[in-house]
Nucleic acid binder design. Structure first.
Length: 292
DNA sequence: AAACCATTCGAGAAGGTGTA
DNA sequence: TACACCTTCTCGAATGGTTT
């Protein structure tokens, strides 16, 4: 086994096949050569590394991939650092609400602070972000911190946002408790999908109160929750955001004693200097949001 | 049936290494 | 330094299996 074998295997495993790997290789190598090298590698190890058609890593292949992947994933970063320019590229993943309400300002601040700042941005929930961090495919994640984090995960809470119920102003409801006190709630609930952490936290809090109120309308974003409430389709589960103005016909009812949603940064190992700057700016933006 | 994919083979080129 | 040898590559062609 040599490093070249490993590199080819890494690309094959990452892209799910020899042909796909040949197309994705950063230098010119043809598919027959990759195929032959992988066979040599398997021959030298005396094990099969992946099943062909459909592609699937064997247990041994997964072990080897887990070993090789952090090294090859980190090559881009180390070459940037060795070139002396300092790293200016950060790989970020974040939850939808963070992307909407928080990231634009944070990224603008990063651009002002770090000359030549570049970033990649992917979307994901907490569990997905933790998986991306474990695979070293991102440098830092911004998400809710409601689920238990993995043992090797670093987390810093940045912000807590209270849940609110959005209702049409003319609905006559002035307090959320008026809704929950009823034996049977006939007001339709507009919420994110059931597996979303906001919906899960809300439903858990309802259960504690012995209240059953399942969503009639599941929508894909908090913007849509607001939209459907504004159109009079029911009450919407949302988060109080200090800087987001509600439309004229909608008001927010406080959900006293419901747990706020905790948001924060996730990373593994030691943050790079650029990651530290990003975390510091994220903390600053969160602080300003919380006090506004 | 057609398209696609993995593998194999042969010819030839390029580059590294060892030796006279 | 020149040469032989080895390794690894590309390219083209073919085969056989799988998927659409």
């Amino acid at each position: 086994m040599n490093v070249h074998h490993l590199e080819l295997f890494y690309y094959v495993a990452r892209h799910g096949g020899v042909s796909a790997a040949a197309r994705a290789m950063p230098y010119g190598i043809q598919q027959p050569a990759i195929s032959a090298q992988i066979l040599q590698l398997e021959d030298s190890l005396g094990v099969t590394l992946y099943q062909r058609r459909p592609f699937q890593l064997t247990r041994e292949g997964q072990t080897l991939y887990d070993f090789a992947m952090p090294f090859f994933n980190g090559l881009g970063e180390i070459s940037d650092r060795l070139r002396g320019g300092g790293e200016t590229r950060l790989r970020i993943a974040s939850a939808e609400i963070v992307q909407r309400d928080y990231l634009p300002e944070l990224l603008a601040r990063m651009r002002r602070r770090v000359k030549g700042f570049h970033f990649t941005l992917t979307h994901g929930r907490q569990q997905e972000i933790e998986a991306l961090l474990a695979a070293q495919e991102i440098d830092i994640g911004l998400s809710t911190l409601m689920d238990k984090t993995a043992a090797n995960m670093e987390a810093r809470e940045l912000l807590r946002l209270p849940m609110v119920l959005l209702v049409p102003k003319q609905s006559g409801v002035t307090q959320a408790s008026q809704i929950f006190e009823k034996d049977r709630i006939d007001l339709p609930l507009v919420a994110l999908e059931a597996k979303d952490v906001l919906s899960r936290s809300f439903q858990a809090a309802l259960r504690q109160r012995g209240v059953e109120w399942l969503p009639s309308l599941e929508v894909g974003s908090l913007d849509l929750v607001l939209r459907y409430v504004a159109e009079g389709f029911g009450a919407g589960l949302a988060l109080r955001h200090p800087r987001v103005e509600l439309p004229a016909g909608v008001k927010a009812l406080a959900l006293d004693d419901f747990p706020p949603l905790s948001f924060g940064a996730l990373w593994t190992g030691r943050l790079s200097p650029l990651g530290e700057v990003f975390l510091a700016e994220a903390t600053a933006v969160a602080g300003e949001l919380a006090s506004s």
